[in-house]
Design a protein around this nucleic acid. Structure first.
Lengths: 123, 123
DNA sequence: ATTAGTGTACTATAACACTAGTACACTATG
DNA sequence: CATAGTGTACTAGTGTTATAGTACACTAAT
């Protein structure tokens, strides 16, 4: 349901937060739905439960999740709206990636070609 | 001549290595050329000289640079070839960023718009 | 009431990236 | 030779990230 890259320099808890936001953005998780449990997600991702707990705690502080002790974490009603606002951050991330690719010497033709390829391969 | 993003989770020394490879990829630095000095580059990037020294040392180990103590770091003859192989990694990185942006819910027109914007703002 | 599953909280430890400071060796230049 | 600039090397310390272990509080199901 969710994937991370342990080798990435991006902190795992940040990847988890982005992943959950992405699930909502794609409609796989809706406001009112129960998010995966901390221990269960930690086991499936093979990371420490504290790392997942930290991501969930921060998402709860933002109002994205509603934690019910002994029950689980529920996607809040604001989540959908927050995901829209979060698009700015997503845009910033892609912006940085484009700059990095250019600094790395990837020609614009290759950039354009890659965009088309990814688009074509999408479901 | 070289740019980095101190706020990025990508280690600065990795950014410096990528930047130097990029300069060669773009033809701004050729085999035989003298690379920027460790202290000078550290000053212009506003990072610690040891951080730059580490990047240079690793590039020298890879055979990308040739260090001449008391003189400077020269771009090796193999550098050009190494950069070509490295482009695959750069492409893979951008590919992953595009997928992440899509998972984050960024529409295709926004992706296209961002590509054009970055391209337009480039020196 | 008991049990299993859940979230929460805290400390300690380790690894990594980076900073800071210092010292030394070498080369080019005058 | 003297100087300035260069690369190299080492130690110590800081902050971040993640892990490991433990304990506690609550809820749902039986």
């Amino acid at each position: 349901m969710l994937q991370i890259d342990p080798a990435s320099p991006v902190p795992i808890n940040d990847q988890i937060k982005a992943g959950l936001r992405g699930l909502v953005a794609r409609g796989l998780l809706k406001p009112g739905d129960l998010a995966p449990s901390i221990r269960g997600l930690a086991a499936s991702l093979k990371v420490n439960p504290n790392t997942v707990a930290r991501a969930f705690r921060e998402l709860a502080l933002e109002g994205f999740l509603e934690s019910r002790r002994g029950d689980g974490n529920y996607v809040s009603d604001k989540a959908k709206r927050q995901v829209q606002q979060n698009l700015g951050g997503v845009r910033a991330g892609l912006n940085e990636a484009l700059l990095s690719a250019r600094r790395g010497g990837l020609p614009w033709r290759e950039v354009e070609a890659l965009v088309q390829k990814v688009r074509a391969e999408e479901p």
